[in-house]
Design a protein around this nucleic acid. Structure first.
Length: 981
RNA sequence: GCGCCUGUGGCGGAAUUGGUAGACGCGCCAGACUUAGGAUCUGGUGUCCUACGAUGUGCAGGUUCGAGUCCUGUCAGGCGCACCA
C-alpha cells in the first residue's frame, strides 16, 4: 500500500485533538519535565521554515521524555504586543488587536499541520488582560520593593520606611540610584512628597530622570539592547541621547546574582560569555583625590569648589604614573572645578559635546578635551596634576572621573600625546615611545623610594598582579579609598511611548506616581481615537477619552473628570516588549489561575524550565530580563527556582537560498547558468517555489508574471539551471519557503525529519530544498518495511480481507495478530535494532538529531536486506521514530494492533549483548600504515592480538629481515608493529 | 582592540577516549525496469596516476608507533562587547 501521508496525517491530527492526547496536569506519581520554546511574535507574514526548527527540536525531546515516563509540559503561546501591529494600525487604521488576532489564527493553523505535542489548553497571549494582569502585578511588586545588599534579596519597601524612621540611612546597604545620607530626624522632617522622592531612589521599579535612547521616528525610548550601532534595532532609525523621566527597573541590583547564576545553568559557553560581557563586572579601587588650593591670583568659579573627588581604577598599581585626571563632561564636578580663566573654553567644549550624538561619538573618535584650570593632588606623592575634561570619560560608569596613566592606557596615551602631557612608564622594559603598554603583566619599577608622602608602599620588583593587590591593601588601610566592584549592566528603561503594550497600573497625584489597588487589576488598555502621539507630543494613550483614575469609585473614568482630588490622570506610556515575555514560562504552569500568577501547587510541581529552545539574539535582552524578573519573583516566593531556564539550546537561523535566472540584456530571453557567460546578462531573483533542484519550472515561470508570459529560454541538456546564493530569508528576494507548501507536498513527518537532518540545531544554515527527497524516500522505504511486517502479522486468515485504514482496523488486527504466528525476529534483526536504540537514545540526549536520522536510514536498509517482517522489531522502530515522525509512527503502531497511542508507549532499552560481535575485523599496521586487515575474536586481549597478527601469512613479507621494536595492540581498534631494520 | 565560536569532497554534513577520514543525504556517473520519467531499484563517486601506488581535514611547526581530534604559532570567516578606566 502506498504511503498516503496526507490521509494519515489528517487522521491523527484530528484524533490527537479530540483525545486531548497532549494535555497535561501535575501528577505527583511521575517525574516532571518542562520543555519550552521562545514564543513567537505573530507577524503578518506567517511562519516560514525557519520558525519550526526549534519547535521541532524541542518537540522531539518532549516526546522522547514522555516515552521515558516523564510528565512533560510543552506549552505554546504568543508574544502578541509589538511594534509591527501598531505601525500597521497607524497606516491602515486597523486596530492592532484585530490584526494580531488574525495573525495568531494563521500561526495556529500552520503550527497544527506540523504535528507538535503542544498542550494548547495552556496557551497564553501577552495582550490578554487575564495575562497582563500579572505583568502589571509584578511591576507593582517591584515598585513596593527595594534590594538589600546585605541580604542579597528584594525586601518590602515598608521595611525600608521603618528603618528610616528609626535610624535614617545609617548602616544601610541597599541598591540605589544615588548614595544618600540622612538621619531619622531628617527623614521625619521631610514632607510626604520628599519622602516619596527619597524612596524612588531605592525602589526596584522607579521613576527616574535618566539619559535615554530616544528614537524620534518611532516616537519612543529604547532599551540599550534595542539600539545597535546608534540606530534602532527595528527600523534602523537614528537614536539620540535625551534626558527624560522614565520608569526603570533596577536590574543592576541583581548584577552579581545574574553573573553567579550563569555558573549553575547548562547554556552554551558563548551565550554565557555574552551575558558576562553585558554585565561587565570589573573589580577595582575607588580613590579620593584632593583638589589643590588655587594659585595666587586665580579665581574660582561661582559654584562651590569641591575639596576632593573620587576616581575609579582597575589599575591602582599605576598610581605613580598618573600625570593628569579627566572628568566626564556631564560630571557634576565640572562646574566647581572650572576656574574663571578657563570658563569660556570649558563652556564652549561642553556645548560642542552636547551636540554630538551617540552615533557621532562612536564613528568619530578624535581626541578632544579642555583643561579645567584646577589641579588635583596625587594621594600618594602629593604631586599636583592638572584636571582635564574630555568626552572619552563616561559619566555613567564608575564615578565619571579617572586618574590618567598615559604609559599604561591607550586612551590616556592618545590624550597625553595630543595635549603634550607627560608619560611616565612604570613597567620594566615597556617601550612607551610609540604606544602605551596596556597589558597587566611585567615587573613594576619607578615607584618612588621609601619616604614619600605615604611611605611604606614598595611596589618595585613586584608583578603587576601583586602590585594591584598591594596597592588595594594600602589604600584601604590608610583610608585613601576603598575596593569597589563596578558593573556595566544598566537599569532597564521600562517606559515606551506606544499604544500596543501593557498599560502601567499607575496614576499621578501631586506629581508623584501611585499604584492603583492590586485588587483592581488588570487595568485594561483603553481604546484610542488614533494610534499616533497627540498634538502636544504625548504618547498615544493621550488620545484616550477614558483614561483617568477615580480613587473613590476605584475605576477608570473619563479624562474630563480629572480634578486632582478624587480623579487623577493615569500613566500614558506603556510597558516594553520584554515585560510580557519575562514571566510567561511561569504562567504556562497555571494559565487560568485568577488569584495568582502561578499557584503554589503548580509552581512547586513544575519548578522551572528544564529545556529552553530559542534564538541566541535574545542573549542580552529577554534572557537577561527574564532571569532578573524570575530572581525577583523568587525573592518574593512566587517562583520556586533561582534560575528560570536550566538548559538552553540556541537554534541557528535558517537563511534563505535564493535562485536566479539570467536575462539576456534588452530581451525576454533567459539563459541557463552554465551558458550565461556567453551572453551579457542580468541576474533576476526568481521565486524559489518555481524551482526544484535548481531546475526551473518553465511553465510556472511563464505564469508567474505577465511580463514573463512570452519568455524564451536557452537551455542546457533540455533544462534551465538556476543560479543560487545564500541570503536572508525575505519576501523581496523571493526565497521564503513556507512550511505549508512542504507539508502539502511531502507531509509533516518529512518536513520534521528534513529540518533536523539539515545540520546541527545550533548552527545557522541556508534552507535548501534539494535534499528533502532523500528524507521522503526514507519514509517511503520505512513504510514498505512496516507494511510487510503488518501483512505478515495479519495475512494467514485470507478470508478476512482487512480493510486497512478503517476505524475498526486496530481492534480487528489486534485479534488477528494474536491469533496467527508472527515471524520471530532473527538475531541479525535484533542486532540492527539494538544498535539503533543505542545510537538514537544517545543522539537525542545530546541533541544531535542530525546524526540519528542516518542511523534510521541504515537500519531500515539493513532490515529490508534481511527481509525482516517481525512486528516486534517494527513496533519498536515505531517507538524510536515517534518523536521524529509522530503521524507515521502512530499509524503503523495502530496497524500493528496496538490499542493505545504510540505517545504512551515505552522507550525501548538497549540490550548490550546484541551489540557484541563474535569477531571483529581490524587493520594491521606496520610502521603506522595499514597493510591488511584480519578477523580477531571480539574479546581478544592485546597479547592475543599480537600473536594472531604475527602468525598471519600476510605479515611475513613485512616482518622479514626486520626487527620488531614495539607492538601496540588496542583491543577493538588496531594492531600496530613498529619495525626497524 | 578584547572575548567567544567555527574551518573536513562539487554541496549539507559524519567520525566515542588520539586508532582504517569522508557515515548519511544531495548532486553527479553507469546499469536495470520502463512508451516515457522530475517514478522505482542496483552499483560507483576526495584528489593525482593506465595501474602499482601516492596524497589528503585552512596554513606552518610540535608531541606520538599513530593526529581531523592534543600543544604552539598563524591565516580566514562568524558572533558578542567596545572610549567601561
Amino acid at each position: 500500500m502506498e504511503y498516503n501521508f496526507q490521509e494519515i496525517e489528517a487522521r491523527w491530527r484530528k484524533q490527537w485533538a479530540e483525545q486531548k492526547t497532549y494535555h497535561v496536569e501535575p501528577d505527583s506519581t511521575r517525574p516532571k519535565y518542562y520543555v519550552l520554546n521562545m514564543f513567537p511574535y505573530p507577524s503578518g507574514a506567517g511562519l516560514h521554515v525557519g520558525h519550526p526548527l526549534g519547535y521541532i527540536a524541542s518537540d522531539i525531546y518532549a516526546r522522547y521524555k514522555r516515552l521515558n515516563g516523564f510528565n512533560v509540559l510543552n506549552p505554546m503561546g504568543y508574544d502578541a504586543y509589538g511594534l509591527p501591529a501598531e505601525q500597521y494600525a497607524i497606516q491602515t487604521g486597523q486596530h492592532p488587536a484585530v490584526t494580531t488576532e488574525a495573525n495568531i489564527a494563521r500561526y495556529r493553523e500552520q503550527l497544527d499541520k506540523i504535528g507538535f505535542s503542544f498542550d494548547w489548553e495552556r496557551e497564553v497571549r501577552t495582550c490578554d488582560p487575564a495575562y497582563y494582569h500579572w505583568t502589571q502585578w509584578a511591576f507593582q511588586q517591584m515598585f513596593d520593593s527595594y534590594y538589600s545588599l546585605s541580604l542579597q534579596k528584594a525586601q518590602p519597601i515598608a521595611d525600608l520606611v521603618s528603618r528610616f524612621e528609626e535610624r535614617g540611612t545609617e548602616g544601610l546597604q541597599a541598591a540605589c540610584s544615588e548614595e544618600l545620607s540622612f538621619t531619622a530626624g531628617e527623614w521625619q522632617a521631610m514632607s510626604e512628597v520628599e519622602q516619596q522622592q527619597t524612596l524612588m531612589n531605592y525602589r526596584l521599579a522607579y521613576l527616574g530622570e535618566t539619559m535615554v535612547n530616544w528614537c524620534l521616528q518611532l516616537g519612543t525610548v529604547l532599551a540599550n539592547d534595542e539600539v545597535v550601532d546608534g540606530v534602532s534595532e527595528r527600523g534602523g532609525y537614528p537614536v539620540v541621547q535625551k534626558k527624560m523621566k522614565q520608569w526603570c527597573l533596577r536590574v543592576s541590583a541583581y548584577a552579581q546574582r545574574l553573573l553567579d547564576g550563569l555558573d549553575t545553568v547548562e547554556w552554551s559557553e558563548s551565550i554565557k560569555e555574552t551575558q558576562r560581557n553585558w554585565i561587565g563586572r570589573s573589580e577595582g579601587t575607588e580613590m579620593q583625590f584632593r583638589v589643590a588650593p588655587l594659585a595666587e591670583g586665580e579665581k574660582a568659579a561661582a559654584l562651590p569648589r569641591p575639596e576632593s573627588f573620587t576616581i575609579f581604577t582597575t589599575r591602582a598599581d599605576t598610581i605613580f604614573g598618573v600625570t593628569f585626571c579627566v572628568l566626564a563632561p556631564e560630571s557634576e564636578l565640572v562646574q566647581g572645578l572650572t576656574t574663571e580663566a578657563q570658563r569660556p573654553a570649558v563652556e564652549a567644549y561642553l556645548e560642542a559635546t552636547k551636540k554630538r550624538t551617540e552615533r557621532e561619538r562612536i564613528s568619530d573618535r578624535r581626541v578632544s578635551g579642555v583643561f579645567s584650570g584646577s589641579y588635583a593632588l596625587n594621594p600618594f606623592t602629593g604631586a599636583a596634576i592638572p584636571i582635564w575634561i574630555s568626552d572619552y570619560v563616561l559619566a555613567g560608569y564608575g564615578t565619571g572621573a579617572i586618574m590618567a596613566v598615559p604609559a599604561h592606557d591607550s586612551r590616556d596615551y592618545a590624550f597625553a600625546r595630543h595635549f603634550s602631557l607627560p608619560v611616565v612608564p612604570l613597567i620594566e622594559g615597556a617601550d612607551v615611545s610609540r604606544e602605551s603598554f596596556d597589558a597587566k603583566e611585567g615587573i613594576v619599577m619607578n615607584s618612588p623610594a621609601q619616604g614619600c608622602a605615604c611611605g611604606g608602599l614598595e611596589l618595585n620588583g613586584l608583578t603587576v598582579q601583586e602590585a594591584i593587590a598591594a596597592t588595594k591593601k594600602f589604600v584601604t588601610a590608610h583610608g585613601l579609598g576603598r575596593v569597589k566592584v563596578n558593573y556595566r549592566l544598566r537599569d532597564a528603561i521600562f517606559s515606551r511611548q506606544r499604544y500596543w503594550g501593557e498599560p502601567f497600573p499607575v496614576y499621578y497625584k501631586d506629581g508623584m506616581p501611585r499604584m492603583i489597588p492590586s485588587e483592581c487589576l488588570p487595568l485594561q488598555l483603553p481604546e484610542v481615537s488614533r494610534f499616533l502621539p497627540t498634538e502636544t507630543g504625548e504618547p498615544p494613550l493621550g488620545n484616550a477619552a477614558d483614561w483617568a483614575w477615580d480613587v473613590e469609585k476605584r475605576e477608570v473614568v473619563a479624562c474630563s473628570l480629572i480634578d486632582n482630588r478624587t480623579v487623577f490622570p493615569l500613566e500614558l506610556s506603556t510597558m516594553p516588549g520584554f515585560a510580557g515575555s519575562s514571566a510567561y514560562y511561569l504562567r504556562y504552569m497555571d494559565p487560568s489561575n485568577a488569584a495568582a500568577l502561578v499557584g503554589k501547587e503548580a509552581g512547586s510541581y513544575w519548578q522551572s524550565v528544564d529545556l529552553y529552545v530559542g534564538g541566541s539574539e535574545h542573549a542580552t535582552g529577554h534572557l537577561i530580563y527574564s532571569r532578573f524578573w524570575n530572581k525577583f519573583l523568587c525573592d518574593k516566593g512566587v517562583s520556586c527556582s533561582e534560575e528560570p531556564f536550566q538548559k538552553l539550546i540556541n537554534q541557528g537561523m535558517i537563511q534563505g537560498r535564493s535562485n536566479f535566472v539570467y536575462r539576456v540584456k534588452n530581451s525576454n530571453t533567459f539563459v541557463s547558468l552554465g551558458l550565461k557567460d556567453q551572453y551579457d546578462t542580468t541576474p533576476i531573483h526568481v521565486d524559489v517555489n518555481l524551482v526544484s533542484n535548481d531546475r526551473l519550472d518553465l511553465e510556472a515561470f511563464r505564469n508567474w508574471r505577465p511580463e514573463y508570459a512570452t519568455a524564451e529560454f536557452i537551455l542546457e541538456q533540455g533544462e534551465y539551471v538556476c543560479g543560487w546564493a545564500v541570503e536572508k530569508m525575505s519576501k523581496s528576494m523571493y526565497n521564503v519557503v513556507n512550511p505549508d507548501y512542504i507539508v502539502e507536498r511531502y507531509g509533516a513527518d518529512t518536513l520534521r525529519l528534513y529540518e533536523m537532518f539539515l545540520g546541527p540545531i545550533s548552527q545557522s544554515k541556508p534552507w535548501d530544498s534539494n535534499g528533502i527527497d532523500g528524507c521522503f524516500r526514507f519514509l517511503k522505504k520505512a513504510w514498505a518495511l512496516c507494511q510487510s511486517a503488518i501483512e505478515a502479522a495479519t495475512a494467514p486468515k485470507e478470508s478476512e480481507n482487512c480493510p486497512i485504514g478503517q476505524e475498526k482496523l486496530s481492534a480487528a488486527c489486534g485479534e488477528l495478530s494474536a491469533a496467527c504466528e508472527k515471524p520471530a525476529p532473527t538475531k541479525d534483526n535484533l542486532k540492527t535494532l539494538h544498535r539503533l536504540i543505542r545510537k538514537v537514545t544517545d543522539d537525542i540526549e545530546a541533541f544531535s538529531y542530525n546524526t540519528s536520522i542516518p542511523a534510521f536510514m541504515v537500519a531500515v536498509d539493513e532490515w529490508r536486506q534481511q527481509q525482516c517482517q517481525s512486528p516486534e522489531v517494527v513496533g519498536r522502530l515505531c517507538v524510536l521514530l515517534a518523536p521524529f515522525c509522530p503521524h507515521f509512527a502512530e499509524e503503523v503502531w495502530h496497524l500493528l494492533g496496538h490499542g493505545s497511542s504510540v505517545c504512551d508507549a515505552q522507550w525501548p532499552q538497549c540490550d548490550e549483548s546484541y551489540l557484541k560481535e563474535d569477531s571483529v575485523r581490524l587493520g594491521v599496521q606496520f610502521n603506522g600504515k595499514v597493510r591488511f586487515s584480519l578477523d580477531f575474536p571480539a574479546d581478544a586481549t592485546s597479547a592475543q592480538m599480537q600473536e594472531i597478527a604475527m602468525a598471519a601469512p600476510e605479515a611475513r613479507k613485512y616482518l622479514e629481515g626486520m626487527q620488531v621494536v614495539k607492538v601496540v595492540a588496542v583491543p577493538g581498534r588496531i594492531v600496530n608493529f613498529v619495525l626497524k631494520k
